[in-house]
Every structure is written in structure tokens, then in C-alpha cells.
Design a binder for these strands. Structure first.
Lengths: 241, 241
DNA sequence: TGCGATTTGTCCGTATGTATT
DNA sequence: TAATACATACGGACAAATCGC
């Protein structure tokens, strides 16, 4: 691939909908979201408004609004008059995430199947190549993003905005879980060719085969992670700054 | 069930998770949500912070947080430095809502199928009876809520919290659309027995039949509403206070 | 083109409610 | 029971952006 950055948002079949004017709450929400999803703020960590306000050099007003937004996204939980914490996912939560993911992605392929064009196929191969490159480079953080990026393509191609919105929410939880999982157990280790059959089916002409592939592909992923979940972590995760 | 109120949250198979302590933003968000969903605030209507703050007798701080929450729920859209408005759904939006609904509800039945017990069956019949009662009483607003309540049961029974969360978001859009549709076209008019086959299938033992019923049942609903959407409204909706 | 009105965005200081110790 | 830490909320003020004239 010729594009330098593998993560820059340049999906072909999707249109940009909004140019979010620069507001503090937007900026703060973005930075906090990134900090949470990358594990800089570990699950369970408490977020103190005054400290964060000082850290981001804003007043508490915009910061509170950003927190509310992340709460609504499902990344934070807040108990009134007590505090807000990064959510910590249970085993059941992870099961729910994977089962929901299978449902949504099957639906996405049903919606996008007849809309696939050459741009879609090229982009699919490009993202798959990016993923394998990240895996080969042993860059786990990047491979997480690349895998989410790969799977995100079909949602973009579906043209279903409500579905995209739902996927975006699910994507955040997935990323959060994968990052925490990676920190706790070291390598996350998707096999290098684990997405080849996925991509092949997505390029093919058999929708039923694609749907079956999704179920087995993600069932494998769920099984794998659940296996890790039943074993205690190797090292206690450090506290957040 | 012997509880009198038809709308009080008393689902058997689901556990209450939080007792939302009374905060202003919570209270305001609830009231605003109700006002929007019941059509008191028509789609497209602008919400001015200062006016609302005066109306609810609170300062702008908590009010803004409530607005952010509703924005994240998808009921409001806000353009920075310009204003926040109640969303107005397009034809495509409604199509998306219905297709997503079919997907989610099929998934919900798959999850809940083996968990159905006598309490579930009793509750299903109770809610169906409540719905037909509202229809017979020509109470369209109540019948909207009753129909949402009926369909909500399977989500509660699924025990899938993430799915419930997603349904809750979709439910809001559905309610918003139905209310607006009802205001624009007069009666919404679901046939009195339109849910009988749904209930029968949900009580039966054939999951495949149930899934097929969902697709046809909601396909009918989507078709019906889309037919209305192609005709101009009988009267222009008035502005909100 | 500019100007003013409107609305949102942001900040600060302060007071109160709540939970934990 | 008191003290502390924190979230919640108020009110006023100003800055910034947008829109209509």
C-alpha cells in the first residue's frame, strides 16, 4: 500500500458527515476516549474532575460535559455524588460483546453485499494487508486498531448510518477490552492468517458462506478470549496517572 | 401480574441495576426526553439553553449536561455555536430503524428462546392485553407505549444487557417517529389483532417460525409507515413552546 | 460588505449535598 | 460524630461564532 499512515480515515465508500467544530468538550472527549481505549486509564480507575480539568487546562464545565458524553458511550460509569470510573468488563460483558458483534456484522454484510464494488474490494485488501503488517511487526496496539479497521469496512459499505452508530459503540467496548486484555496477559496474539478466510469470503459471491464465516470466525475469537479470562492475569495492571 | 400500572418498570426476568439518585441533569433529561418523545417538542424545534434553564428553574450548567446526554442518545443534534434541535427523521432513517429492529428482535428471540418460563408467558399475554385495550380505547399515545412495551419484553427476557441498551436507543427513535407520524397523519392505526400472530409465535415452540414472524410483522409495519411517508402530511405541525 | 443581535462556549468563585474516613 | 474529599449546582460574566439585516 502506498498511503503512509495506516490509520488515517480515508474510507472510500463512506461519506464524512460532520466537521466537528473545535470545542473544548469535543477535544477533551476525544483525548479521554483515546486514553481509556489505549489503557492509559485502566478499567476501574477513578476520574477526578478537578484533576482532569487542571490536566487539560480547562474549567470543569466542558470537562463535565465530556464525561457525560463518555458515560453515554458506555466507557465510563458514574455514581452521582461519588465519582466516575472507567468501566471494567466482566466475562459476561465480553460474551455479550461477541454475540452482539456476530449479529451486527452478519446484518452489515447482508446490507452491504450488493453494494460491494471494486473500491470496496481494494480497500478490504488494503486493510487486511495493514493488519498483517502490524501483526508481523509485533505491534499489538496497532494491530488492534487495524483489526477494528478491517472489520469496520463492511459497516461503512453498508451505508446504514444507524448500524454504523451501533458498531461505533460496540467497537469502543471491543477496543477497551482488547487493550485491557493485552495489558493483563501480554500478547493478544491473533494468528497472522486468521483473517484470510474472512477476507476471501467477503470477496466471494456466497453470502451464506460469508455469514457462516462470521459466526465461526468470531466464535473462535470469543472462545480464545474466554479461555484467557478463566486464567488469572500474569501481572497486576498498574494504576493510571 | 397483579400490579395495576401498565407502564411501571416491573419486568420479571431483568434486574434493576441502578437507583438513579436525584440529580438535576437526570431530572431535566427525563423531562426533556418525555417532551420530545411525546411530540411536545416537534422534530426540528430549536432548544435554547437560557429559555429552558429558566423554564426548568435551573442554571445552564446542569441543563447543558442534560442536553449533551440527549444528543448522545440521538434525540437531539447540536451545531456548535449555533443551536440544538430535535432531530427530524428522514425516510431513509425510518427504513434503517425498521431494518435494525428486525435484526435486533430476531437476535433477542434467539437469546431468550430457551429462557422463556411461565412468568414470561403471563407477562407477554398481559402486555398484549394492555395493547389491545389501548387500541380499543382509541388512545394512540398509550398504544404506542404499549406496543413498545410489548416488544420490549423479549429484550428483557434475553438477559443481554448490551442488547437491551441498544434496544433502548432504538426504542427512543421509534417512539419519536411514531409520535411525529401520528401528529402529522392523525391516527396511526395498528389493527387490533396485528400482534396476535406475534404473540402466538412467541408462545410456541418453533423458533424459526418466530423469526419469520418478526420479519413479516415488522416488514408490514415498515411498509405501512413508508406508504404514509410518501404522502404529504394533512396539517403542518405546530411549533413547540 | 459590515454590524448587531442571538446563542452557544467557557471561565471563575462560591455554596451545598453526599459518601467515606 | 466530625472532618475531609469530592461531586453537584448556582450565578454572573465574557469570548466566540453564527445569522440576519
Amino acid at each position: 500500500m502506498s498511503t503512509p499512515s495506516a490509520l488515517s480515515p480515508n474510507p472510500s465508500p463512506v461519506r464524512v458527515q460532520r466537521v466537528p467544530k473545535s470545542t473544548f468538550r469535543h477535544h477533551i472527549a476525544e483525548r479521554l476516549r483515546a486514553a481509556i481505549l489505549e489503557g492509559e486509564l485502566a478499567p476501574g480507575a477513578q476520574l477526578v474532575e478537578s484533576a482532569l480539568a487542571a490536566q487539560f487546562d480547562v474549567s470543569r464545565g466542558p470537562l463535565r460535559e465530556a464525561l457525560r458524553q463518555l458515560v453515554e458511550e458506555g466507557l465510563l460509569v458514574t455514581v452521582p455524588y461519588t465519582g466516575t470510573h472507567v468501566i471494567s468488563l466482566s466475562v459476561d460483558d465480553v460474551r455479550e460483546i461477541y454475540s452482539m458483534r456476530i449479529t451486527l456484522e452478519r446484518f452489515a454484510f447482508e446490507q452491504a453485499w450488493d453494494k460491494r464494488d471494486d473500491a470496496f474490494r481494494r480497500e478490504l485488501l488494503r486493510r487486511n494487508a495493514a493488519l498483517t503488517a502490524c501483526i508481523d511487526a509485533r505491534d499489538d496496539a496497532a494491530s488492534i486498531l487495524a483489526e477494528l479497521d478491517l472489520h469496520g469496512l463492511v459497516y461503512e459499505a453498508s451505508g446504514h448510518r444507524l448500524l454504523q452508530r451501533t458498531w461505533h459503540s460496540l467497537r469502543g467496548r471491543l477496543q477497551l477490552y482488547w487493550a485491557a486484555h493485552h495489558r493483563a496477559h501480554g500478547t493478544r496474539g491473533p494468528r497472522r492468517d486468521s483473517h484470510d478466510s474472512y477476507v476471501q469470503a467477503a470477496l466471494g459471491d456466497d453470502l451464506q458462506a460469508m455469514l457462516a464465516e462470521i459466526s465461526t470466525h468470531m466464535g473462535r475469537g470469543a472462545q480464545q478470549t474466554e479461555l484467557f479470562l478463566s486464567t488469572p492475569p500474569t501481572s497486576p495492571p498498574g494504576a493510571a496517572s
